[in-house]
């Protein structure tokens, strides 16, 4: 009987100790905010274009954390969807066409002699990448432009073009090899010879 009581007593004591430790850890290592939102936000392309239907990338990250579909981001494209799927452990689905299609990286260019200096594009730019003042010609800082298209619509004289960023020798990257060809069945040397004979 004593051993039973002793065992129970020890277990109770242990549970109290561990409970105290856990309770302390909960307070000590408490994480403010929702870390998953930050992680999702880090994967989004930060173009702030609003094509997902949210005013910016972070609101969409919050929406994803609350269960919205992960395929509403055209600038991120399939690679972003894949990354989100990996992070959230859900299935990677193809991009939702309703929100736009994945296109090559683009940058806004103002045809400067046509600009009337109305500052509307400056107000529309989510990353302050357009320089200019009222009745002065505006211009886009190409390095800062995320290619979000938001400045095109407000321009009253349609002088903003979205120009694709071409590949230069510095940004060029190697192609992926073809892989194992489906028709490469002439593995044996004699097969190849037969082919030559034809």
């Amino acid at each position: 009987m004593l051993t039973v009581l002793l065992a129970i007593g020890i277990l109770v004591l242990l549970s109290l100790i561990f409970g105290a430790i856990l309770g302390y850890a909960n307070v000590r290592f408490h994480v403010e905010g929702d870390p998953i939102v930050d992680q999702i936000d880090a994967l989004l392309p930060q173009t702030q274009c609003g094509q997902c239907g949210h005013p910016g990338c972070r609101p969409y990250a919050e929406a994803i954390a609350n269960g919205e579909a992960i395929n509403h981001c055209p600038p991120g494209g399939q690679s972003t969807i894949q990354a989100l799927a990996d992070l959230l452990d859900v299935e990677a689905v193809p991009l939702d066409g309703d929100h736009g299609t994945e296109s090559a990286k683009r940058v806004a260019v103002i045809r400067e002699d046509e600009c009337i200096g109305c500052t509307k594009c400056i107000q529309a730019c989510p990353v302050d990448a357009i320089l200019g003042a009222a009745k002065q010609m505006h211009t886009v800082i190409a390095d800062e432009c995320t290619g979000c298209d938001l400045c095109v619509e407000p321009c009253p004289v349609d002088c903003i073009d979205m120009v694709e960023i071409g590949v230069t020798a510095k940004t060029w990257s190697w192609d992926k090899p073809q892989g194992i060809a489906a028709t490469s069945l002439d593995i044996i040397a004699t097969d190849r010879q037969a082919e030559v004979a034809h």
Partner: peptide
Amino acid sequence: ANVKADLAKQRFEAR
């Protein structure tokens, strides 16, 4: 792209 995204995010948040 990550570096650029970080920059865009910074600028967006500053704005």
